[in-house]
Every structure is written in structure tokens, then in C-alpha cells.
């Protein structure tokens, strides 16, 4: 039995008078791949941002590894972010730095690794994701798929214990989606703990240990991909899936 990497308990989050998360509970075990699905605006991004402390919650608790409470007042959020990698829909690479510099910056400034050490680690990762020849390129010379892979490598270079992916293929041309999903697939096979929001149902079907449907600010339904996609309990889940499939 592996430990719990992430525990979310009764989290509330509103923007002004718009309650987005309402008493949301979710646990992610070590090595588990959990896929979040839900309509646009259902709060997937909000949840992921709360997990690594980019957004403060209004109530509830988020625990990392049972030893650090992300939501505690005065929590060491830099520590949290060191241990939680996040990749966004818009790649957000640093445009003024080469690919390698993108990957080494936080290693050096946050983890205190030497330049040589950080570059070695960066090169190793870039190579294993087929990006070694892009190390010296600047982000604007890369395709969207390559940029997103670099963004993933940049987060991985920090050796996080969990990776959060927020619709990382949604901004890509269809023919570039595959290469990015391949990277995630590789990570899941390597045992990385992953929580990802995505609309790629086929990918979820293949890779997810668990699928969670977010609705009304909470996880309305969860189960294996087979259960949720094939035989959803809730009418709202079935409606959502029908809408996604119709696209």
C-alpha cells in the first residue's frame, strides 16, 4: 500500500461572489495517475492552482505527503512549489532564456545546484524527451509541442513528487497533441504521481488509474476510466461525456 501524496479536504474557493470550489475532497496516492474532467469553468484550473499555493483557499485543507499543509497560514509555499510541479495550458516558457536556461534557472536559484550540475541534469532530461538538439534554442523558435515538452522538462528538473498538468494539450494543433501526451505516458509508466485536467478522453481511458468528474465545485463522481466513461452513475456526468464526445 503506497502512501498518500496529496490529500484535499473540504476545500472552498470563491472569486468574489462566485463560489468555484465547494467542499471539495480528493486524494491522490503515490504513483497514481488521476485525471480531472469537467466542463470549462468547473474549477479544474482553480483547484490545481490552489494545490501548489498559487491561489489561497477560503476554507479546508490541502496536505502534501501528510507532512506539509499547503493551506496553513504562513506555510512555506516555496517549499511546496519545489515539491509540486505544474505545467499550464499556455506553456509560459521564459522567452528571454534559452531552453537549457529555462530548465536550469530554478534548479540553481531554488535548489542551489551548481551550474554544471543543473546543466547536466537538464541535458539528461532534454535528451530523454527528444529535445537535446534544442537546448540552445530560444522558445520562439520551437513548435508548440516542443515548447510544451520543454515546460514539462523544466518542471521535472526540480525532481517534484507530484506533477499537475492543466489542460496541457488544449492550446496545441491537433497533430502536436500526441508528442506531448507521449511524454505524460512515459512519466506515468516511470511511476510519477500525476494529477491532470484534460479533455483527451482516449488518453484518460488509457492512462488514468482514476477519473474524477468535477461539477458544482466538488468531485461529483469518480472511478476507473471504465466505470466513469462506460457506465457513469450520475446523469450530469453522462450529459457532460455526451457533450464532449459530440465535439
Amino acid at each position: 500500500m503506497s502512501g498518500t501524496t496529496l490529500a484535499i479536504e473540504g476545500v472552498h474557493k470563491a472569486f468574489g461572489t462566485n463560489p468555484v470550489l465547494r467542499a471539495l475532497d480528493l486524494r491522490v496516492a503515490e504513483h497514481e495517475v488521476v485525471v480531472l474532467i469537467g466542463a470549462s469553468g468547473s474549477g479544474k484550473s482553480t483547484l490545481l492552482r490552489c494545490i501548489n499555493g498559487l491561489l489561497p483557499v477560503d476554507a479546508g485543507r490541502i496536505m502534501l505527503d501528510d507532512d506539509i499543509e499547503v493551506t496553513a497560514l504562513g506555510a512555506d509555499l516555496d517549499e511546496v512549489r519545489r515539491r509540486v510541479g505544474i505545467v499550464f495550458q499556455s506553456f509560459n516558457l521564459f522567452p528571454h532564456r534559452s531552453v537549457l536556461d529555462n530548465v536550469t534557472l530554478a534548479q540553481r536559484k531554488v535548489l542551489g545546484r551548481s551550474k554544471a550540475e543543473a546543466e547536466q541534469h537538464g541535458h539528461d532530461l532534454l535528451t530523454s524527451f527528444g529535445l537535446s538538439d534544442k537546448a540552445m534554442s530560444f522558445p520562439d523558435r520551437l513548435s508548440g509541442g516542443q515548447q510544451q515538452r520543454v515546460a514539462i522538462v523544466r518542471a521535472l528538473a526540480m525532481d517534484p513528487e507530484i506533477m499537475l498538468f492543466d489542460e496541457i494539450t488544449s492550446a496545441l494543433d491537433p497533430q502536436l497533441v500526441g508528442e506531448v501526451l507521449d511524454v505524460v505516458r512515459g512519466l506515468s509508466h516511470a511511476g510519477m504521481t500525476i494529477l491532470m485536467a484534460t479533455h483527451e478522453m482516449a488518453f484518460a481511458q488509457e492512462c488514468a488509474d482514476r477519473v474524477c468528474f468535477l461539477d458544482g465545485g466538488a468531485v461529483l463522481e469518480e472511478g476507473t476510466a471504465q466505470q466513469v466513461f462506460g457506465d457513469a452513475r450520475e446523469q450530469r456526468t453522462r450529459d457532460f461525456l455526451a457533450r464532449v464526445r459530440a465535439r
Binding site: R81, G85, F88, N92, F94, A106, V110
Partner: peptide
Amino acid sequence: SQRAAARSLGLSSVQTTRYVVLP
């Protein structure tokens, strides 16, 4: 989003300004 990306990597606010925003 540049600031968010830098912070999400664990860079402090000052480091984010120094290495990501200012350049």
C-alpha cells in the same frame, strides 16, 4: 503568467522579479 510560471517553480518573489520579469 510569466510570474506565475516562475513562482510555480519555487522562485521567490524577489528572484522572479530579478531573473524573469526585469530582463
